[in-house]
Simulated assay, not measured.
Amino acid sequence: PCQFQELDCRPSKGLSAAVCKELQAKQKEHKARVAKQQEEASAQQRLTAEQKMTSSISQGCKQVAQYSSAVAQRRALEVLPVATLRERAAANPQKLDSPADELIVQLLHWFKGEFFTWVDTLPCPRCGAGTTNTGMTQPTPEELAWGGSRVEVHTCTECGLDTRFPRYNSPVKLLETRRGRCGEWANCFTLCCIALGYEARWVHDHTDHVWSEVWSEAQQKFVMCDPCEDTYDQPLLYE
Rank of each mutant, 00 (worst) to 15 (best):
32 A>M: 12
23 L>Y: 13
237 L>F: 15
91 A>F: 03
239 E>C: 05
30 H>V: 04
104 I>N: 02
183 G>Y: 10
22 E>L: 10
133 N>G: 01
109 H>C: 07
161 L>C: 03
15 L>C: 06
66 Q>N: 09
119 V>C: 05
202 W>S: 03
176 E>F: 08
31 K>R: 15
128 G>R: 03
87 E>L: 13
154 H>P: 07
31 K>V: 13
235 P>A: 01
12 S>V: 15
139 P>R: 03
120 D>M: 06
25 A>W: 05
189 F>S: 00
49 A>N: 05
110 W>Q: 01
157 T>C: 07
76 A>G: 08
54 T>N: 15
120 D>F: 09
175 L>H: 09
61 C>P: 00
224 M>T: 15
55 S>W: 13
138 Q>E: 15
12 S>R: 14
238 Y>W: 13
30 H>A: 02
137 T>F: 05
132 T>K: 14
214 V>G: 00
102 E>V: 11
101 D>V: 01
235 P>F: 08
40 E>W: 03
10 R>L: 09
233 D>N: 13
67 Y>T: 08
5 Q>S: 08
16 S>G: 14
144 L>M: 15
96 L>N: 03
89 A>F: 03
108 L>H: 01
219 Q>T: 02
114 E>H: 02
229 E>I: 07
99 P>T: 04
29 E>W: 06
24 Q>R: 11
32 A>S: 10
96 L>C: 05
178 R>W: 07
60 G>M: 14
104 I>M: 05
158 E>S: 12
182 C>S: 13
189 F>R: 00
200 A>Y: 02
120 D>W: 10
207 T>C: 05
77 L>S: 07
13 K>W: 12
38 Q>N: 10
40 E>Q: 12
30 H>R: 03
70 A>N: 08
85 L>A: 01
75 R>E: 15
170 S>C: 14
100 A>C: 04
